[in-house]
């Protein structure tokens, strides 16, 4: 949904978005199929699910939400969000590190 596209652009965009929609449906089937693989490790199964989800997220955010052609200020807002989210995650991991636990016995 970019700024002021003409009618031809809009029709092209809709065509592209339909292709993305089809790709998303295929990726969903791939994710479900991957969940039936005999993977013992929880970390590995989450990593696979997240990897496919990230590809889907890239398609939705980049093309359906038109982030790839969006203005700089929007990118700046999202870069700041990513920075604060990473900082928050780091704080959680830092607070949970084994050295923070005192074992008296």
């Amino acid at each position: 949904m970019s700024n002021q596209p003409d009618s031809h652009d809009v029709q092209q965009q809709v065509r592209k978005q339909k292709q993305i929609c089809a790709a998303l449906l295929v990726f969903t089937i791939v994710t479900v199929g991957a969940s039936y693989l005999p993977i013992e490790s929880a970390f590995a199964s989450i990593a696979i699910a997240m990897a496919v989800a990230l590809v889907e997220a890239f398609l939705v955010a980049g093309f359906m939400m038109h982030l790839s052609t969006e203005r700089k200020i929007v990118h700046l807002v999202l870069v700041l969000t990513f920075f604060f989210f990473t900082a928050m995650m780091y704080l959680i991991l830092w607070a949970n590190r084994p050295g923070n636990r005192l074992h008296l016995h």
């Binding site: 969903t28 994710t31 479900v32 929880a42 989450i46 997240m50 989800a53 997220a57 955010a61 939400m65």
Partner: peptide, 18 residues
């Protein structure tokens, strides 16, 4: 609405499949 879709794209594999 796309954002709501995006959240579900993460929620479904994480909650249902892992």
């Amino acid at each position: 609405w796309h954002f709501v879709d995006l959240v579900w794209i993460f929620a479904f594999p994480v909650l249902y499949l892992t």
